[in-house]
Design a protein around this nucleic acid. Structure first.
Lengths: 124, 124
DNA sequence: CTGTATCCCCCCTGATACTG
DNA sequence: CAGTATCAGGGGGGATACAG
């Protein structure tokens, strides 16, 4: 079945915290969602924004987020193929969470020596 | 060295999102931080709040959060031993992030069938 | 009470090649 | 362009026993 990823949930008052985390952790998910806040993106457009993600992993993470109802996947029957990814309403509702994560990360950039200051990135 | 956990960081405009996630994902970290918002806790007090965490994992996660400067660890040289865990200023600054995660989780509880409504948990 | 130490397994993740 | 298939490795995580 499809819900095995959420088995880590126990039931304590803070379980909703972990529940949300199970949806957005996993390598790249947070960044992908963040970029989709700006609008629909094609597969390779997302790929270009994540310099070191592999094709296999990106596909996998996108499929999981689709299964969780966070993003939508639209296939255009063309040659060459075209697939658009966009946030669903539920995915977009994560915006406050994503912005909180980003703001904290920027404010504590000293913890992440390999993270360049916001705005100086290669994908900017 | 101690920073290998953060190797997943690439440099794209959303990298701060992933950066923050590397600190609070990992099983139980989010919930532990959430509970520590209410005040200092002893090792076994935390353990009681996480019904299914193993001793080994809890120790490990606590050590990582300590290394990341999110929590402080105070050892009282007593028999039996006593160890207090508390949020550092940096850890407490995660409050907006943690609350955003919790609010979203509660608002989307339908995604997590095994999560009982907030307030009905065994540890309440 | 608060941990370490040891063993072990599964899955996440990567590398590479192939396909419609 | 947008994937899938396959092989392989490393580490996250669990169970259990032991220690100060």
């Amino acid at each position: 079945m499809g819900r095995t990823r959420h088995d880590r949930l126990d039931c304590s008052p803070g379980c909703a915290v972990e529940a949300t985390l199970t949806l957005i952790d996993g390598k790249w998910k947070g960044v992908v969602l963040f970029h989709l806040l700006d609008g629909t993106l094609r597969f390779n457009e997302i790929r270009r924004k994540l310099p070191s993600v592999t094709q296999r992993m990106l596909t996998h993470q996108l499929r999981e987020m689709e299964a969780d109802g966070l993003i939508s996947r639209t296939v255009f029957p063309q040659v060459p193929p075209r697939v658009d990814y966009a946030l669903t309403d539920r995915g977009r509702s994560l915006q406050p969470v994503l912005m909180a994560l980003k703001q904290w990360g920027d404010a504590n950039a000293d913890l992440f020596p390999q993270m360049k200051p916001s705005g100086t990135c290669d994908a900017a």
